[in-house]
């Protein structure tokens, strides 16, 4: 289980491959699931130029570890990985990677969804968008589940 806050851009696919290659129980794995979130060039009807992302050092890492522990208890996961950017983020850059490994797809996919949804609603991160000639804080995240 690994949680990291990254101040620099990262390649989520390379990171997931690197982490998976280091896992001891590779023979037991039948499924890997991942979610990658990246910065769009538009939000709430406005063109976005770039974004500043801040967190609460200490609490954010602790909260992400708690979410991963909860997922590991709820599903028979082999492992999970969460990487999240902070600082200045450019369009197209990865903001977050959540990856889970399990024997079966259902557990890997359900746990991955659980982790990203809890992260979006409760992990202490805040986004400030830089628009054309102005900037604004993102007000709140919405639930990712359809009504």
């Amino acid at each position: 289980m690994q949680v990291q806050i990254r101040a620099e851009p990262f390649d989520p696919h390379a990171e997931m491959g690197r982490y998976q290659a280091g896992l001891q129980s590779r023979g037991a794995m039948g499924a890997a699931a991942s979610f990658i979130g990246m910065l769009r060039d538009h939000n709430e009807g406005a063109a976005v130029r770039e974004m500043q992302l801040e967190h609460y050092p200490g609490m954010t890492e602790k909260h992400l570890l708690d979410i991963c522990s909860a997922a590991m208890s709820r599903w028979p996961l082999i492992d999970c990985l969460v990487l999240h950017r902070t600082g200045r983020i450019r369009i197209g850059e990865t903001i977050v990677l959540v990856a889970t490994w399990a024997a079966h797809r259902g557990d890997a996919m359900d746990a991955c969804r659980f982790i990203i949804e809890d992260l979006k609603l409760r992990a202490p991160f805040w986004k400030k968008e830089r628009l054309e000639g102005s900037e604004r804080w993102v007000e709140k995240n919405t639930s990712g589940y359809s009504l």
């Binding site: 967190h55 999240h84 903001i95 977050v96 979006k120 202490p124 991160f125 993102v138 709140k140 995240n141």
Partner: peptide, 8 residues
């Protein structure tokens, strides 16, 4: 103290 979170 902080406003609603907006990570991910």
């Amino acid at each position: 103290f902080f406003p609603p979170v907006t990570g991910g």
